[in-house]
């Protein structure tokens, strides 16, 4: 942990577009405040690049308060860098030491093609959601919330699954680029609640089929996804999805 201003060497993945060949490019940065966030450090780098007339580094970011899931940097071999339970925007330069070399790469997965530099296209996740990650609700007045009693434990588990921000760190860190943690969280948040029951077994089949069609890898239960998830989504969700999948395929009479 550093207190004074820091000098850093960055090795950043630069790639013009999806078809171009990319490479790691070295940048020297001086006088970086340890209180800056990782993204603010990139803002400094980009200002310097723009002043020099170079192309700034393209990277995804939006809310910068850890809830949108846009910032997607693979920092020194870990998604969102060395800290647990944070996104890149909530990672501060005090987590590094003066003189450090930091390697920054985009998420790497066939299902997440690089758009430019550190930005990848995560619309594969959107298509998985569109395949079944919703519930049917009748139009008209919303009914009284107390009409549907939900046990506290159940509500908490659903809420914890719903904390997934769809950042893709699970895919990025998985040795197989598997999306099981994301998909299982999106299935669980609905499967745990009464509102999710009508489509429960149709949903798990459709979403898993879409996940496979997008070209994500297969789960080998290394647990890396759970360890790197900025929202602490549990592997329990994957087991629940597998259970639901088995029920849907071998017990339910509804075919998708």
């Amino acid at each position: 942990m550093s207190t004074g201003n820091m000098n850093l060497t960055l090795k950043v993945w630069r790639q013009k577009n999806n078809n171009a060949k990319g490479a790691l490019v070295d940048y020297k940065l001086a006088d970086i405040s340890p209180d800056m966030s990782f993204l603010e450090m990139f803002d400094v780098l980009n200002e310097q690049l723009i002043n020099k007339g170079d192309e700034p580094v393209v990277f995804d970011h939006d809310c910068r308060e850890g809830i949108c899931g846009m910032c997607s940097m693979f920092i020194n071999g870990r998604p969102h860098g060395p800290k647990d339970l944070v996104t890149t925007c909530q990672l501060h330069m005090r987590s590094f030491k003066d003189g450090d070399t930091i390697v920054v790469e985009p998420w790497r997965a066939a299902a997440f093609p690089v758009v430019k530099d550190l930005t990848v296209d995560r619309s594969a996740f959107d298509r998985v959601i569109a395949a079944g990650g919703f519930i049917s609700v009748n139009t008209g007045n919303a009914q009284d919330a107390n009409n549907l009693p939900i046990p506290k434990m159940q509500a908490d588990a659903a809420f914890e699954a719903a904390a997934c921000i769809g950042c893709g760190a699970c895919v990025a860190t998985c040795k197989n680029a598997s999306a099981m943690l994301f998909v299982s969280a999106k299935i669980s948040q609905l499967a745990l609640l009464p509102q999710g029951q009508p489509e429960r077994y149709r949903r798990v089949q459709s979403m898993v089929a879409q996940m496979d069609a997008e070209g994500f890898g297969n789960c080998t239960n290394t647990g890396a996804c759970e360890a790197e998830c900025p929202k602490g989504i549990s592997l329990e969700n994957i087991a629940r999805m597998n259970r639901d999948f088995a029920s849907a395929k071998f017990i339910s009479e509804e075919t998708v």
Partner: peptide, 23 residues
């Protein structure tokens, strides 16, 4: 699984989040 990640990472710190034998 290999097809699911055609471009490998230059730096990948696997030991930070999983056991070597699980990988």
């Amino acid at each position: 699984n290999q097809k699911a990640r055609p471009v490998k990472y230059a730096v990948n710190d696997g030991k930070a989040n999983s056991k070597w034998y699980s990988r």
